[in-house]
Design a protein around this nucleic acid. Structure first.
Length: 213
DNA sequence: ATATCGATTATCT
DNA sequence: GATAATCGATATG
C-alpha cells in the first residue's frame, strides 16, 4: 500500500476543542489524522502515524517543565497552536499545543506517512526526486526532524500558527481514516522521565520512525 | 546486522 | 559552558 487513498476534497478541519484536553488523549486521537501544508501551488500532506505526549505539570521531560520562557510560550497558550523548537543545532520539531490557555502541554508529531506532494517533499529533504520505492518514501518523513524538513516547517515561519484555522497554510484535518490498532511505548531521545509510556504509534505502520516498521 | 559519533546552535544554568 | 523531544555517516562484527 505505497500510495494510500487520499481525497483532498473530503477533508474536515479539526476544531480547537479537539486539542483542549489532556495531551495523552490528544496524542492518541491525532493518530490517523492528516497534517497539511498548503504551498502556493503544491499541497503537501501526510498521515500522522507516530506522536508523543508532553504533559504540563509533573513531566520533567517537557520543555514546559521549568515554567514559561520565550521559547516555550506557545505551550502555555491556547490549544491548537504550533510549537516549533530547534534541536541539536540541526533540526526543527513540530508540536501542537494542548489544554486551555494558561496550562502547558503539547503533542510532538514524530512521523508521517506521505500522502500528497511526495515529489516536493523529497526535494525539500534533498533527496533524488525520482525513486518511488518504499525505502525512499520512508526517508521523507519518518522522524520529527525529517517531517519538519519535508513540510518546510521552521520556528521562524510557523511557530505560533493556528492549526485549526481554515486559511492557515498549516492545518490538521481528518479524512475518516481510523487506526486499526495503537501501540504505546516510551518516548524517544529523552533522559528525564524516560520510563513514562507516552509515545503512541499506529501498530504495524511502515512509516513509524526507527529501524523496523 | 548494530554501534558509535560528529554536526551545529538556541536556550537555559 | 553544557545540554538537547535528531539525523546521517562511518566503523565494526
Amino acid at each position: 500500500m505505497p500510495q494510500p487513498e487520499f481525497d483532498p476534497e473530503k477533508l474536515k478541519l479539526i476544531p480547537r476543542e479537539f486539542y483542549d484536553r489532556d495531551p495523552r488523549r490528544v496524542a492518541r486521537a491525532l493518530l490517523g489524522k492528516v497534517l497539511v501544508r498548503r504551498e502556493k501551488k503544491t499541497l503537501l500532506a501526510g498521515r500522522i502515524v507516530e506522536v508523543e505526549a508532553y504533559l504540563g505539570a509533573g513531566d520533567a521531560a517537557a520543555h514546559s517543565a521549568a515554567g514559561r520562557t520565550a521559547r516555550n510560550s506557545v505551550l502555555f497558550g491556547p490549544p491548537g497552536h504550533v510549537y516549533v523548537y530547534f534541536i541539536y543545532g540541526n533540526h526543527y520539531c513540530f508540536n501542537i499545543s494542548c489544554l486551555p490557555d494558561g496550562q502547558a502541554g503539547g503533542v510532538l508529531v514524530r512521523a508521517l506517512e506521505p500522502l500528497a506532494g511526495v515529489e516536493q517533499m523529497m526535494k525539500n529533504r534533498g533527496m533524488a526526486a525520482v525513486a518511488g520505492d518504499m525505502q525512499s518514501l520512508r526517508m521523507i518523513s519518518s522522524g520529527p526532524g525529517r517531517l519538519a524538513e519535508a513540510l518546510g516547517i521552521t520556528r521562524e515561519r510557523d511557530n505560533g500558527k493556528d492549526v485549526t484555522c481554515a486559511d492557515s497554510d498549516l492545518v490538521v484535518v481528518e479524512d475518516g481514516f481510523r487506526p486499526r490498532k495503537i501501540a504505546t511505548t516510551a518516548r524517544i531521545g529523552i533522559t528525564k522521565s524516560a520510563e513514562e509510556l507516552l509515545r503512541y504509534v499506529i501498530a504495524g505502520n511502515a512509516f513509524v520512525s526507527g529501524k523496523r516498521a
